[in-house]
Design a protein around this nucleic acid. Structure first.
Length: 585
RNA sequence: GCGCCCGUAGCUCAAACGGAUAGAGCACCGGCCUUCUAAGCCGGUGGUUGCAGGUUCGAAUCCUGCCGGGCGCGCCA
């Protein structure tokens, strides 16, 4: 409906003399839902906007636009109100035909081709494979997955990717940690480094290693720790100590066996993450290896591009990228004095590689603590001759868990409730997916565990799912009475729908394409959650106000068509959020 | 110190590009089940949008300055 009115206004504008259109020819006729029913169903403020540029009276301009409006059977009337708003009153038939449209288009109702087939790569989660996902990653997963679905539903070609940080020091520390746990299993006495990964999850991985390789990777503990710089508890430095442990491990095992341990840790943890996310309904098209980046020469290509464009220089033995020339606050090292490329070099290489793969939109979902990284990577892209706007970053704020009124402390040490897996087990996947995207991604999220698991009317997930199940229940009742829903009869009798509660529900149903389009454009899955609540409210109100299973077959099937349409929209919207739509509750 | 994000009802949060009287949920108060699931509905109380200025027909939204909270400022990853 909104789209229709926008088209009508656009046509009216095109018919106006140039001086009325002002200089803003590209101005989109912005039609929005009226807040106040007295202002009609839709309102357009175009006259107010144009009046400034055209230096005319907005109300007079509005009158000229209205006069130029092509007649349309779905527009009952228009009026000019306030400073120059054009209010549109829609006919009942306009709402009714939306119901027919829902039944015709089904799962596609609400979808659009706004993205025009452009290719987007959505990178999200990308947590280091050094341990299980925690509740913060869960929010990234839920947000990223919903965002990807939103884009797909609005005509984008979407590729979902997880960047696996399988290189670098953190992974070496993981390998050393796995190995030390393995040595313990073999019977060695190990003083576990303060800076190692101390989580219990490494023990099964060490056991896996032992099952596969027996004692082949065992080395005496005194050899391992002989003459190492002391760890922190012994008055030393934790960083130097762990690095020395890693170096010793390499020395004692040799490159090949070091890699064996390293890969065991990486693969086991990655398998766990994959399984966790899969169970959470979050899937990726590709798990992109950071190591592969270097292997395929992507880093070299990126550096070559920077050189070509003359944006690097040498200083203090290192190679620097002139980031300041592209809006960053300081220049960045890309190749260290020791010849190794930096993490930043990998980052820009990865993003260049995304462009090489043909993506128009590089959408990164990152933790809020990574905001400093955005300007840098964009600078890199521009310097390499790629459009800076192709990179779009959405930051996800932190999650605080609450049980009842009290905050759940989330330190790794306390061993309390930290993993996504535990959260899923406690509240269920539906509630978790829903709650994670309930708030705008740039707001801190207070996740109320008790509310999420509550099987009560306070719980918004149940409230929405219940609307879906309730329709299913009504349909079962109808069938049980020997009067199953007859869509043909219902569609033919849509003209019978006109009660206030029915109109309100039809209007909400008609809003879904608007909500979906806007949620995708604004990258705002939370808008879908808010809509779902309002939609469910309109349905529950209708349920209480009117009986559906009435004697008159025409009216009965018309009402059933209405609630079947409602059910379809609830299913479509929940589906985008990765939440199930149950038949019974 | 510099930079980014945030500050809206008692609580948790909405409000695209500046639009009409700032909206929901929870909590609180009062009603509605012999009838399709009360996991529901209806009504009510509740606001100087952190503070002070500015821009204009119009500001929660844009600009400036302050106050409060979070995060970032490595040849770490």
């Amino acid at each position: 409906m909104k789209e229709l009115i926008e088209r009508l206004v656009a046509q009216a504008l095109a018919a106006l003399p140039a001086e009325d259109r002002g200089s803003l020819d590209d101005l989109h006729p912005e039609v929005e839902r009226s807040r106040d029913p007295a202002h009609g169903d839709f309102a357009c403020s175009i006259a107010l906007r144009l009046a400034r540029a055209a230096r005319t009276n907005p109300r007079a301009l509005a009158a000229r636009i209205v006069a130029a409006l092509p007649p349309n059977p779905f527009i009952a009337r228009t009026e000019i109100a306030g400073p120059g708003f054009i209010n549109f009153f829609v006919t009942t038939a306009a709402w009714q035909q939306q119901i027919a449209r829902v039944l015709e288009t089904g799962a596609a109702y609400g979808c659009s081709d706004a993205g025009a087939g452009r290719r987007a790569i959505v990178e999200f989660v990308s947590a280091n494979p050094t341990g299980p996902l925690h509740v913060g990653h869960g929010r990234h997963a839920a947000f990223g997955a919903s965002l990807a679905s939103l884009l797909e539903a609005t005509g984008w070609s979407v590729h979902r990717e997880y960047y696996v940080n399988d290189a670098g020091r953190q992974m070496d520390i993981l390998a050393a940690s796995v190995w030390l746990r393995y040595l313990e299993l073999c019977g060695e006495r190990v003083e576990f480094p303060v800076n190692g990964y101390r989580g219990e999850y490494l023990r099964p991985i060490a056991a896996d290693l032992q099952a596969r390789h027996g004692a082949a990777l065992r080395r005496p503990a005194d050899q391992v720790f002989a003459d190492l710089p002391p760890d922190e508890p012994a008055g030393g430095d934790r960083e130097r100590h762990i690095d020395a442990v890693i170096a010793r491990m390499r020395e004692l095992l040799g490159a090949a066996d070091f890699r064996t341990v390293f890969d065991r840790g990486l693969e086991d943890i990655l398998a766990d993450i994959r399984d966790d996310l899969g169970g959470f309904g979050v899937r990726f098209d590709r798990w992109y290896s950071e190591r592969g980046l270097a292997d395929h020469g992507a880093i070299d290509r990126a550096l070559a591009r920077l050189r070509e464009h003359g944006h690097v220089y040498e200083q203090d033995g290192a190679l620097w990228f002139r980031a300041t020339a592209f809006g960053d606050e300081k220049d960045r090292v890309v190749v260290r004095e020791n010849g190794q490329s930096t993490y930043f070099a990998s980052d820009i290489a990865y993003h260049l590689e995304k462009r090489e793969r043909g993506f128009d939109l590089l959408l990164d979902v990152l933790g809020a603590d990574h905001h400093g990284y955005v300007a840098r990577v964009r600078a890199g892209l521009i310097a390499m001759g790629e459009p800076g706007e192709s990179l779009e970053v959405r930051l996800v704020q932190f999650v605080a868990l609450f049980r009842g009124g009290t905050k759940v402390q989330m330190s790794t040490r306390s061993g309390e409730f930290v993993t996504l897996r535990e959260l899923r087990a406690e509240v269920g996947d539906d509630a978790a997916r829903f709650f994670y995207v309930m708030r705008s991604n740039d707001q801190h999220l207070d996740f109320d565990l008790e509310l999420a698991r509550a099987r009560s009317n306070d719980n918004p997930v149940y409230y929405v799912q219940y609307a879906h199940a309730r329709v299913a229940s009504v349909l079962r009742q109808a069938a049980g009475r020997g009067q199953p829903f007859d869509a043909a009869v219902g569609l033919a009798a849509l003209g019978r729908l006109g009660e206030p509660a029915e109109l309100a529900l039809m209007s909400e149903i008609a809003r879904w394409p608007e909500v979906l389009g806007q949620a995708a454009a604004l990258r705002a899955p939370h808008a879908v959650v808010h809509y779902l609540r309002e939609l469910a409210t309109a349905f529950h109100a209708c349920y209480n106000a009117l009986p559906f299973l009435v004697e008159d077959p025409a009216l009965r099937n018309a009402r059933l068509a209405l609630i079947v349409a409602l059910q379809q929209v609830v299913r479509n919207a929940l589906g985008l959020l990765g939440v199930t739509a149950p038949e019974t509750m």
